[in-house]
Write a protein that binds this DNA or RNA. Structure first.
Lengths: 211, 211
DNA sequence: TACCGTATAGTCGGTTCCTACTATTAGGGA
DNA sequence: TCCCTAATAGTAGGAACCGACTATACGGTA
């Protein structure tokens, strides 16, 4: 599979918006925020302007007008090209079909859970669980007064449901792991360095961990 | 919450390895791969050397020896400093406690699921589900002949279980969504552009809806 | 009316990150 | 013995990315 010319998904958002109507970059950013798409795309003004330039370079979008409103800075309005419309759909298709490796920060930290020791690890996970629960609740609220009240079709916010599902799974794993640390079923070996290399204690004693 | 000086989690992996013993960068990379940690950290030689330099700049690690084996390129061996050991634990703690926004490619694509139309969207998701199922199976195999056979304590591969859980959740959502597309419970509105703006068809009534 | 906060619109400079490449050596097969 | 491949170890250049900043306009308020 050949590498994509543009990999930043913010470009996908730009293409998506320009499917609807021509726009200038600042308007793209505010529209994305209005529609709560800033949870799925990292909307950063610096990146946005770079991204737009890159899209122009590849001929996926093109400037159609440079307007000036009063003495505000000049705005360049862009529109998609036919090429861009095709690539938009092809890109979505590819992203959906093929899972790619992602490296979430949480996974990195979980890799070294051992380094905190059982008590501190459990405590940290408890705090995380709290934050996750709160975020889930807030997101449910957002869903309720957009899709729930019929203001927006469900399909247009489907990624929010998807994210919600992922957080709920993470929360479930986190809570289960907290429980396993506490009841000792996630054994915490004690590591020692010998001349041969590393050794660790085995979970043979069933009384619980030695701290 | 102040921004971290170093944000690339590959630096966390480096610190983790150097807790055990001094090493040169190439050895870090191969050790991470041996231990299947390359699923949690993006191990890229270019980034690795940059990361190591950054860690030295901040005084978290330091070169302890530059050895030469035959006429191979010179290797610089690094070890953690006390500062680095403290930061290692603090960083893990912080990453665990506080969920941060991530922007997975899949989420971006799901945002524009609508653009594919119901049939192509369902087809793409079916393919993804296949890939996910396969990856889950492969990972289970890896777990079986490391932790399962007692070669490695479970705690040392706990992040693999965590990733597995996340993929299973994604697979479940994907399958459910395929089903909802097929049986029509995920309604696909038809969008039309009018002078007022955008309109879409509603799931219950026929055309003519609110904006 | 003077001031302040927020919205509008975008620029700039530096760091980070990654791809592609170089160069050497050990090992194995023909 | 000689060649080929894989492993060893790292370098270099450029693209991507982001945070911090500039500058104007507008609305409320004291």
């Amino acid at each position: 599979m050949a590498k994509r010319k543009i990999s930043n998904t913010l470009a996908l958002a730009v293409l998506g918006l320009l499917q609807e109507q021509p726009m200038h970059p600042y308007e793209m950013a505010s529209t994305l925020r209005e529609r709560h798409k800033d949870g799925s795309f990292k909307v950063n003004s610096g990146s946005l302007y770079d991204t737009v330039e890159a899209l122009v370079r590849h001929g996926w979008i093109e400037p159609v007008e440079t307007a000036r409103d009063g003495r505000r800075p000049e705005r360049t309005v862009y529109a998609t090209t036919e090429l861009g419309q095709g690539e938009f759909v092809r890109w979505i298709d590819e992203l959906l079909r093929m899972p790619v490796a992602e490296y979430p920060k949480f996974m990195a930290a979980v890799s070294y859970l051992g380094a905190l020791g059982p008590d501190r690890a459990a405590e940290a996970l408890v705090e995380r669980a709290g934050h996750l629960a709160q975020r889930i609740e807030e997101t449910n609220t957002v869903l309720a007064d957009t899709v729930g009240s019929g203001k927006v079709p469900r399909l247009f916010m489907i990624e929010v449901e998807c994210a919600l599902h992922a957080w709920e799974a993470e929360l479930a794993w986190t809570r289960r792991t907290i429980a396993e640390i506490r009841d000792g079923s996630l054994f915490w070996p004690e590591v020692e360095q010998t001349e041969q290399g590393w050794t660790w204690s085995a979970p043979t004693d069933r009384k619980g961990s030695t701290r």
